[in-house]
């Protein structure tokens, strides 16, 4: 297990390197640059700016410099935010994005699993049909449509919640629900399917044959097995949620990592783009590692050698 962990952690290095290389290449392949304006800057100005930020050097030197600095925790400078480095900028966005992501994740679990369970336990009942219906709806509505819809209802019509910004709990409610809708729908569907599958297993009959109460059969024998597939999809969902949503953060004007990334792309802010992409890759890799470890904890058949 320790060996496995070490190997997985070491694998992070080539993965992040590859991500950095691909991002860097794509960034420079895309036409346009950070100094493009409505009204073109004087060639001398551009040249000076390029020299200042080291953009006049050959690309492989630029890439090498970036890697060397990144290794020491410095993700470089942002052209749009002059006062702080990219590391500081991302660190200021991270708590907001992570708070929102974690809340949305728990919402998705707390909504998805009970509805999935209820649907499976009462298969072909009204509860089941309603759960499947809403799961399909929320799995199909894009986040920005749902976000705008609830914004119209709760902000424009009812005046209950602010349309955006960051500061107190009220700011969190709409974006976290908008973010949670899709994963909740997803989790509900997987929970339902997995419960139905487990409920007809022989070992559930064995448990009943022992005389166990239905509650124990459900909690001890069915649920633990049924939640294994749910975990498989919940892990990547968590990685996706805590690394921020470009759309929801923009829609609700939340100054998180997702919004910074979008700003960076529009401004061709090379430093910010590289920084946020690497942050995403790192977050996804770490969460996947945690999920894989949890897997072995929940399912004794999985052992890492």
């Amino acid at each position: 297990m320790h060996k496995y962990l070490l190997r997985r952690i070491l694998w992070l290095v080539p993965v992040l390197l590859a991500v950095a290389f691909i991002t860097f290449s794509l960034m420079h392949l895309v036409p346009g640059g950070p100094w493009d304006r409505e009204k073109a800057l004087a060639p001398q100005v551009v040249e000076n700016l390029n020299r200042k930020y080291g953009l006049d050097k050959p690309l492989f030197v630029q890439f090498g410099n970036f890697l060397w600095n990144a290794l020491r925790g410095d993700l470089g400078v942002s052209y749009s935010f002059q006062d702080r480095g990219v590391t500081q900028i991302l660190l200021s966005g991270l708590p907001k994005t992570a708070t929102l992501g974690v809340i949305a994740f728990f919402l998705a679990i707390l909504i998805g699993i009970p509805f999935g369970m209820a649907a499976a336990l009462k298969q072909n009942s009204a509860v089941d049909y309603a759960s499947v219906f809403f799961a399909t709806i929320f799995a199909s509505i894009p986040g920005f449509v749902l976000g705008i819809l609830i914004m119209i209802i709760f902000s424009v019509v009812l005046h209950l919640l602010p349309t955006g910004g960051w500061g107190n709990v009220k700011h969190l409610i709409m974006p976290s629900f908008a973010l949670a809708a899709l994963p909740a729908a997803y989790i509900a569907r997987i929970t339902r399917a997995s419960m139905l599958e487990v409920m007809r297993q022989d070992y559930v009959r064995t448990a009943r044959a022992k005389g166990l109460a239905e509650r124990i059969v459900l909690l001890r024998h069915i649920l633990r097995n049924a939640l294994i597939p749910v975990m498989t999809i919940a892990g990547p969902e968590l990685a996706f949620l805590i690394s921020g949503s470009f759309i929801i953060e923009n829609l609700f004007s939340i100054p998180g990592v997702g919004r910074l990334f979008v700003q960076g792309v529009f401004a061709r802010d090379y430093g910010l783009i590289m920084g946020s992409i690497l942050f995403y890759a790192f977050a996804v890799a770490i969460v996947n590692l945690i999920v894989d470890i949890l897997y072995a904890v929940v399912d004794p058949r999985i052992r890492y050698e």
């Binding site: 022989d202 070992y203 022992k210 058949r301």
Partner: peptide, 25 residues
């Protein structure tokens, strides 16, 4: 009925490979 199952009447099932819960010792 639950007080009868397992206590008064017990059953050995046909399929040993699938009749035990995989995640419990």
């Amino acid at each position: 009925m639950r007080k009868v199952r397992g206590a008064e009447i017990a059953m050995i099932f046909q399929e040993p490979m699938t009749s035990l819960n995989p995640v419990l010792t």
